[in-house]
Computed example of a mutant assay.
Amino acid sequence: MKLNKIGILILLIITISGKSYTQDSTQNRLKPLLIASSATYVTSLVLLDQLWYSDFERKGFHFFNDNREWKQVDKVGHFYSAFHISNASYKLLRWAYMDEDKSIFWGSIASVIALTPIEIFDGFSSEYGASYGDLIANTAGGLFFYGQQKTWGEIRVHPKYSFSQSPYAELRPETLGKNLSEELLKDYNAQTFWLSFDLSKFNAKLPKWLNIAMGYGANDMIFANDDSNKSAGFNPQRQFYIGLDLDLNEYKTRSKALNTLIYFVNMVKIPGPTLELRNGKFYFHSFYY
Rank of each mutant, 00 (worst) to 15 (best):
L135F: 03
K208N: 11
T43F: 03
L195V: 05
S181P: 02
W95G: 14
F282H: 12
L195R: 01
L33G: 09
L275R: 02
N249C: 05
S162V: 06
F61N: 05
G60A: 06
T139C: 07
G215C: 08
L176G: 15
I10W: 01
G217I: 05
W194H: 01
M1D: 15
N279R: 02
S111G: 10
Y289C: 08
F197P: 00
Y97A: 13
D247T: 01
I113D: 04
F193E: 13
F56I: 03
T151V: 10
Y216C: 10
T192W: 00
K102P: 00
S89E: 00
N235Y: 10
E170Y: 01
N4T: 15
G233Q: 12
N189H: 05
G129F: 04
F234C: 04
S54D: 11
T22S: 14
H158S: 13
R156F: 05
N87Q: 14
F264E: 02
S162F: 13
K186I: 04
M221D: 07
S164N: 10
F61K: 10
T175Q: 14
F121T: 00
L48D: 08
L30C: 10
K5G: 05
K150Y: 09
L9K: 01
S162Q: 06
S255C: 09
Q191I: 02
Y188N: 11
G60Y: 06
F83S: 05
L246F: 12
K230E: 13
Q237S: 11
L47H: 00
L92D: 04
S20M: 02
F64I: 08
Q149I: 03
R238W: 04
S44C: 06
K150N: 12
A218S: 15
N225M: 12
P159F: 07
A39Y: 05
Y21D: 07
D24M: 06
E250R: 14
A137S: 13
R254F: 13
N87W: 11
N65E: 05
A114E: 01
Q72I: 06
E57R: 12
R254H: 10
M214Y: 03
R238M: 07
D227Y: 00
Q148A: 09
Q23F: 07
R254I: 00
M267V: 14
S86E: 01
F197Y: 04
H84F: 09
P273L: 13
L12V: 01
I120L: 10
F83M: 04
T274W: 12
V157K: 00
P32N: 09
T26R: 11
G153K: 03
G142K: 03
A39C: 05
N28K: 15
S196K: 02
D74R: 11
P273F: 11
F105M: 00
N67A: 09
W209N: 08
D247R: 02
T116I: 13
P207A: 09
S166M: 01
L206A: 09
A204P: 09
I14F: 00
I242M: 11
V265L: 13
Y263G: 09
S108A: 05
A190C: 04
K205P: 01
K160C: 05
K281P: 02
